[in-house]
Amino acid sequence: MPPTYSENSRELAFQEAIDADRTVEPRDWMPDRYRSTMVRQIAQHAHSEIIGMQPEGNWITRAPSLRRKAILLAKVQDEAGHGLYLYAAAETLGVERRELLDLLLAGRQKYSSIFNYPTLTWADVGAIGWLVDGAAITNQLALTKTSYGPYARAMVRICREESFHQRQGFELLAELSRGTPAQHQMAQDAVNRWWWPALMMFGPPDAESPNTAQSMAWKIKRVSNDDLRQRFVDMTVPQAGALGLDLPDPQLHWNETRRHYDFGPIDWDEFRQVVGGQGPCNVQRTAVRRAADQEGAWVREAARAWEGRQQGRTSAA
């Protein structure tokens, strides 16, 4: 594109390239709004991975077998890794990870509100793997085809690595469900608490989602919130049957005409409340992140100072 193009014609050319399924790469020209939308979305995704370490990390030291402990430790480690991949993808858009972490701590960028719910029992680790990761994977598979190259590539890597996350959750719950009555009860209680928040993970209904149309046109988003939610419900209901656990929705039933499961109304007031910072763990999650950041400052600074000294030594020699 010659530089004589006006912004307008550049934007048209950009849209044509998107329509032709051309991937956008970091150094390409892109509309400011595309860039800022992308930064916001990738950052939110990265923050979710990092904050998401806390509810599951809560059970690593108490895992009831050494095998489960190893699985959980590996999974939470993956989440740190996935946060890193995503921050790196965001950094290709001209922002720095530090800025994004500052925005997170200042409450100016969000993370998935699901992580503002507490993990009260061991079964919650299973419910998060099965339902929360199941919902996340549904969303992320759609994002492997997103228009921004670095984000799509991060998603491919993340989806490949996360394939075990949902399975371990399912297996964990299956073991509990067919275990002692107390274990079965623990599993059912966890599913009761996590089901509705998991459905909220796909975001508000399409009719109330103002950014959806533009995001679809730019192919940042490839499938709408409601469609993804339906996909997740259809996939999950038979799995619940196999687990021998009930989903806490009396209105849930197969609709032969739609060839989909119908489900009851989602409590969007609760969603807005948690997104707005009033969930059970919002304050705690941010406080832990802030403390880690502050307590690590002297370590990061020491490493920088040491390297500065090495550089000085090399150039002096």
Binding site: P26, R27, W29, M30, T92, E96, R97, R98, R300, R304
Partner: peptide
């Protein structure tokens, strides 16, 4: 253009508060 033409991708790396990339 989208930003400074340094590095493989568009980034502005400040060394002040973060480890380099």
């Amino acid at each position: 253009m989208g930003g400074p033409a340094a590095g493989p991708d568009v980034r502005s790396v400040s060394e002040a508060d973060d480890w380099p990339l």
